[in-house]
Simulated assay, not measured.
Amino acid sequence: MSTTPGTHSLAFRVMRLCRPSIHVEPPLRLDPMDLFVGEDIFDDPIASSNLPPLISTTDSSNSSDLTFSSRFLLHHPSDSIGLSGLLVLPQAFGAIYLGETFCSYISINNSSNFEVRDVVIKAEIQTERQRILLLDTSKSAVESIRAGGRYDFIVEHDVKELGAHTLVCTALYSDGDGERKYLPQFFKFIVSNPLSVRTKVRVVKEITFLEACIENHTKSNLYMDQVEFEPSPNWSATMLKADEHLSDNSSQSRQIFKPPVLIKSGGGIHNYLYQLRMSATDSAPVKVQGSNILGKFQITWRTNLGEPGRLQTQQILGTPITSKDIELHVVEIPPVIRVNKPFSVSMVYFIAF
């Protein structure tokens, strides 16, 4: 078996599979008239007739000219927003975030002048904690890859760890002379946190309020599908919304057509408020290091073109609940107590601090 570098007939090429973005053409220049009149001045035929001719003489039939000075000549309402209708693929590997699905298109190319045979291909993800096997063709090796040909496959991995990741692709094959060769290739990338969740816990008259602030750390807008707080078994949770004062019809329509919550890119935030009550059936809360466990968040979102993501927070701990001993003393009882008859007893209690 040979592992000599630079003598391999095969080579891996890795491409990330992700959805394209919408290409927007910004205005190329500013017409001086835009400094003195508004864009809607041409809606009034009398006002527009008193204006001097525009300095720009660009032909409005040219759809590629999306400058501000010619956007009042619209052939379609969508022309004013500057969208060219083109979709653009990323030019680099791009950012990879926790909670997303890493999808990669891998091609193993035969650049030699002879056919290679019995190709065993493996692909795995290595992190600081574990190794995840994505593909293994040991039991069904690729019979052959012709000269100048290739073998393609797709791998997917749900990203659940932060930090450095390595995509390891290996091939074991027989070259033109029948010699078995081993090819390893490594592709490294970093997984970042797409959002942060900051929480505050306040207790007001035996009612616990939990505030959660979600901040977007990505370079794209996030549309929150679900921000659900899952309380621990000894708690019940109710989300408090600012629009609960709306009429019944408005509330019903918002329940049927739930608009997604938009958290803008580059530091946008959104706040959620929950009211927590301890269940009456539970006599004591679950405690961890002196604090009671409230529950955890399940968060799902989508990016501009619908790529999904999902995160689950760690257990959120509330303020410690301390119990106080109560001591009762009987002050006065009636001299005669009759069977099946109610009676009054005077008692006094003391709370131990």
Rank of each mutant, 00 (worst) to 15 (best):
K324F: 14
E206N: 12
V204D: 02
Q312D: 10
S49M: 10
Q298F: 12
E332A: 14
Q275R: 14
C103D: 10
T313P: 05
E206C: 02
P52E: 05
T319Q: 15
D44L: 08
G82P: 09
S232L: 07
P335L: 15
E228D: 12
G178R: 08
H165M: 05
I337A: 12
D243Q: 04
C103T: 14
L54V: 02
T313Y: 04
E39N: 13
L66V: 08
F353E: 14
R198K: 15
L210M: 11
I46M: 10
A95P: 05
E115C: 08
L87E: 01
V204E: 11
H23Y: 14
I263Y: 06
T322L: 09
S107M: 13
S56A: 07
N249G: 02
I333H: 07
S138D: 01
G94Q: 01
L54C: 02
P231R: 03
T127E: 00
P32L: 11
P53F: 07
S84L: 12
C213N: 15
V197M: 13
V155K: 03
I41S: 01
A47D: 05
R277P: 04
D79H: 07
E143P: 04
A95C: 08
V203N: 13
S250N: 01
Q314V: 08
Y272N: 03
D325V: 06
S247K: 14
L74Q: 14
E115H: 01
I299H: 02
S220M: 12
E244K: 03
D65Y: 03
H270V: 05
I207Q: 00
K296M: 11
I333W: 00
F72I: 00
P20S: 09
R302H: 08
S279N: 15
I299F: 03
D40Q: 13
D118Y: 08
Q275K: 14
R117N: 14
H23P: 00
L135G: 12
S291T: 03
F186P: 03
D79W: 02
F102M: 09
F153M: 09
S192V: 01
L294G: 00
S291G: 00
D79F: 03
I132L: 02
G318A: 12
D175N: 15
F68L: 07
P233I: 11
T281R: 12
L30R: 05
L89N: 14
I22Y: 01
G267V: 00
V168Y: 07
P231W: 05
D31E: 15
L10D: 01
S104G: 00
R180T: 13
E124W: 14
S48R: 13
G267N: 01
L183M: 06
N110C: 11
D40T: 15
I46T: 07
N292T: 03
P90Q: 06
R13E: 13
P5S: 10
S196Y: 07
L17H: 11
R338Y: 07
L135R: 15
V201D: 03
P260V: 07
L51E: 10
P335T: 15
I326W: 08
P5A: 09
E228I: 12
G163L: 07
M239H: 02
V336Q: 13
E143Q: 13
S251M: 09
R146C: 09
G148S: 08
Q185I: 03
L98R: 05
H245K: 06
S80L: 10
K264H: 09
N292A: 01
P5D: 10
P77W: 10
E215A: 09
R202M: 08
T58I: 03
T3V: 13
